[in-house]
Write a protein that binds this DNA or RNA. Structure first.
Lengths: 167, 167
DNA sequence: TAGACAAGTTAGCCTTGTCTAACTTTTGAT
DNA sequence: ATCAAAAGTTAGACAAGGCTAACTTGTCTA
């Protein structure tokens, strides 16, 4: 492939490190994407059970914004993967593994949400963004988010205190 | 569907607002997910062109961690969607629309990355998380991220200044 | 208790994203 | 100028996630 045909790229100016250190990230991100839907389902099922005592496919469909057959197919997959149990024409239940996953997802979601809110975001937007972001936050970042959300007020006080003391 | 079969949900405790206000988010998130791959490709293509003068399928494949035929099929789709142009056995080029998208993605990526770094995250992790997060950040949140990243030092100074003045 | 209606399922189709295997074109070194 | 290796393409398989249409089961009310 000859290096002819050059193209102007005025608009886009990545810095040096970009091309190489970003490369490996893609693989990991795509891996994360594969589990997103399962996590969303499991989390939603847990919420429905908590809120209504059961998780019915029709409610899952409504909340997820998809049709009933889509839900059925996805639930079959989740059952195959051991996250839920189901019987024909009945509600869905989480296995131990499913509950563990739901709990973990809930935890991440809570932290991301609190973090966004503590940053000054409105609830609507925070809720929506948290839904998308929560699946892509490493443990390290999550810890930082948690610390920030919990500590932002305290930090300010500390900072002011220090400023006062140090003068 | 009778409301029998109840299940213990000790582990998972969503608060009241959760079930309803989170619902609508899913639809939006799924919409965002559809464009992620296209955005990743376009951004990568822009970077390759910038860094090497051209974007070859083989490099895209390496960076994305997939095989050549996968890249070929995806590039066909991007071409169909008007984001790139390509000729058989040649490198790939961005259309105006593709360049615009790449620029926008780059911009988001930069902000998210700077934000994560300013939060104290190491470069590796920040890079990886930014890759996943950037597609799920609303304009509102992005603005907040940008302000935080740019202003965290300034804020501290202001805060200290205020603390001093107000006493 | 009988049906009507709501909920759930099944079948079949489409698109995307992934792969391997096999083939063709381009490039570059001798 | 030739030809081997690298790059690119095509064909075909498969799973996931989505849909509509048509059928079955459960529930609840008259």
């Amino acid at each position: 492939m000859k290096k002819n045909d050059n193209q102007e790229v005025e608009a886009v100016m990545p810095d040096e490190r970009a091309v190489d250190s970003r490369a490996e990230a893609f693989v990991g991100v795509r891996a994360a994407r594969r589990n997103e839907l399962a996590e969303d389902y499991v989390e939603l099922i847990a919420e429905l059970i908590y809120a209504k005592g059961e998780a019915r496919p029709v409610d899952i469909a409504t909340k997820m914004g998809v049709t009933a057959p889509t839900v059925a197919k996805t639930l079959d997959r989740l059952a195959r993967e051991g996250l839920i149990t189901r019987a024909k024409y009945r509600s869905v239940f989480l296995t131990e593994e499913g509950r563990a996953l739901a709990k973990e997802c809930r935890h991440r979601h809570e932290i991301v949400l609190r973090f966004l809110l503590s940053l000054g975001l409105d609830l609507e937007t925070a809720e929506r963004d948290a839904e998308g972001i929560e699946h892509h936050v490493s443990d390290r970042t999550l810890a930082l988010f948690a610390a920030f959300a919990d500590g932002s007020r305290v930090d300010r006080r500390n900072l002011m205190g220090e400023a006062l003391r140090s003068n």
